[in-house]
Simulated scan of single mutants.
Amino acid sequence: MARFVVVLPLVALTEGDDFAAARWPLHVTLVEPFPTSLGAEEVAAVLGSVDGIGREARALHARGGEPAMFGRRHDVPVTLVVDGGELAALRGRTIAALQHAGVELHPRPDYRPHVTRKDHGRVRPGDRIVLGTVALVDLRPPEGAHHRRVVAAWPLGT
């Protein structure tokens, strides 16, 4: 069974990009990781039909909010992301489209958009953020468990 995640990277990602699991580019997760029997092309087709991704899509503008600690042990440093509600609306439309296509999702009811602090970068409170790409990332690519591959990406207009 395939396993994917939908993200809004802070840098442009394109189809075919890959990276080590430990070196994720900074991003906001739009839809949490999910297993599916659908193939990458089928999931990409669903995402490409979502208003705000595939058709006349616009970049999302946000800013860094307060720092927080996430994870089971509250030991993962993040910066919350603050916007005008566009992230939640896009998330809702994307989840609805995937569920309509038969993907079983378990979205977090307490979803709080954030960017995880990494050794290679972070978002600080007050930083302006432009989310100009939606990317579908394969969490189980042929390269193995320590790799991630972008299987589809949609640049968002300004």
Rank of each mutant, 00 (worst) to 15 (best):
H114S: 02
G102H: 07
A62Q: 05
Y111A: 10
A101F: 02
R112P: 03
H106P: 13
G102Y: 06
G85Y: 09
Y111E: 06
R55C: 04
A44T: 13
G48C: 05
I53L: 00
D119F: 15
V81C: 04
D110V: 03
K118R: 15
A62T: 11
G48T: 01
E104G: 06
G52R: 03
V81E: 10
H61P: 11
A96V: 00
A44S: 12
A97D: 04
G84H: 06
P113E: 01
T79K: 01
A68M: 09
G65F: 06
P113T: 00
T79Y: 03
A89R: 09
P113I: 01
V76A: 12
R73M: 09
A68Y: 02
L80M: 11
S49A: 15
V76F: 11
T94Q: 00
D119E: 12
E56P: 05
D119C: 05
E66G: 10
F70N: 08
V78Y: 02
A97W: 00
I53M: 03
A101C: 04
V81A: 03
V103H: 04
T79D: 06
T116E: 09
F70S: 10
A101W: 00
K118S: 15
L105E: 01
G71F: 13
V50S: 05
G85K: 10
D75H: 12
L90V: 08
H74Q: 12
E104V: 15
K118C: 15
L90G: 07
L98T: 00
P77G: 01
D83S: 08
G54A: 00
G71K: 10
G52Q: 06
K118N: 11
V81W: 05
R72H: 14
H100V: 10
A68H: 06
D75C: 06
V76G: 09
L98C: 00
R108C: 13
Q99I: 00
A89E: 15
F70I: 10
P109S: 06
T79P: 14
A101E: 00
R108E: 14
A44R: 04
G48E: 08
D75W: 06
V46C: 11
D83L: 04
G52W: 01
L47T: 09
L90R: 09
L60T: 03
R73H: 12
G92W: 04
D110W: 07
E104I: 15
E86H: 13
D119L: 14
Y111T: 04
R58M: 13
R117L: 14
P109L: 09
V82Q: 12
A59T: 13
I53E: 03
E56T: 03
